[in-house]
Each structure stands twice: as structure tokens, then as C-alpha cells.
Amino acid sequence: MATEAKRTRKNAQSGIFAVFREQEAAIRRFVRRISPSSSDVDDIAQETILRALQAEREREISQPKAYLYMIARNVVRDAMDKKSRSVIDFIEDFAPESVSSHEPLIEDQVDGRQRMLLFWEAVATLPEQCQQVFVLKKVYGYSHAEISRKLGVSVSTTEKHVAAGLRRCSDFLDRRAAESGLNETRRRSAGKGE
């Protein structure tokens, strides 16, 4: 085992690839757990190794295994983001003429980490089942069908929970924004008002 690892490291060209091969089954299991749907697993696994190879060309990767997991996680998150973005695009097709559809990017204005903590608090206030569904959907990126199977509730129930969860989060953020005078939430929604 140890000698094999050494040999892997010596072969600098394909170091990360060898680790990927070694870890592929485990990474796929990991991806399956966190990816939006099981059909995405191949795509995500492939994207993961592609990004890893790219990164390896640019710099040395001291911990290939941990690195692969980190990339897989990022790929899943990006997939979720892309999906959300496409929903927003779809909605923006209906923009009334008086509304300009592009606003300054939130990410540029707000410390993402702090915002994440805020969301986390918001999620923590959800009723139990609603929270379960919401966490599966937004934290783990499960599909409605998978959530429905896992929790033994109907797909339409999971939809209702996701809607209610989002609504409550939105209320929570509004309340918090009202509580603290110079909150970012307020700043960012100021542009959206009248």
C-alpha cells in the first residue's frame, strides 16, 4: 500500500488521476449522496476529474484525495447554482418593460459567509418536516422525487415544504433586516423596491 502510494506520487503527470481511479467508487458514492439526481453522477464525476487535472497542471496538489472531494462538492454546488440561474432566466423572460432585469450581483456586496450563517439561522427556525425537506433540497441538493422516497411523503408535499421554507426564510431575513439598521439585506433590497 505504502509503496504503491509512493509510486503514484513519483508519476507526477498522472498523480491526481491515479488517486481518482483509486477513489472513484468512493467519490461516486459521495457524489450520489449530494448530487441533484442520480443521472448527474457521471457528469459530476467527470467534471471533477477534469477540474482536478486542470488544477494539477497549474500547481502541486499536496492532498489529492481531500482535494478531489472538495472539487466534487464544488461541482455539485455549481450545478445547483446553474439550475437556479436557469429558473431566474426563465422568470426574467416575463419581465415587465418597466423593470430592468439586471441588478448588481449580490455576491459582490455581501460577505457570503455571514449571509450563510444568517440563512442557517433562518433554516433552523423552520418546522421539523419542512426543515428536513428544505435541508435535503438546499443543503444536499436532492431532487423532489428522492426526498419523497426518503421521507415517505408525496412529491407535492415536498414542493409545498420547499415553498413554505423559502417563504419563512424570506420573512426571517426581512425581520432581521428590520432589527439591525444597517443590515446588508436592507441594502440589497433597497435597489429592488419601487
Binding site: I34, S84, V87, I91, E92, A95, G112, F119, K138, C169
Partner: peptide, 21 residues
């Protein structure tokens, strides 16, 4: 329009929770 757009942006933002595992 404004309301659903706002919620869609929020929903997208909440995706960052995916980092929490």
C-alpha cells in the same frame, strides 16, 4: 413579477448552504 424574481434570487443564494454538509 418582482416578488417571484426576488424569491428566485433568494433561493439561488440559499444554495450556498450546500457548503455546510
Amino acid at each position: 413579477y418582482a416578488e417571484i424574481h426576488r424569491l428566485a434570487e433568494l433561493s439561488r443564494e440559499v444554495n450556498i448552504l450546500a457548503g455546510m454538509a
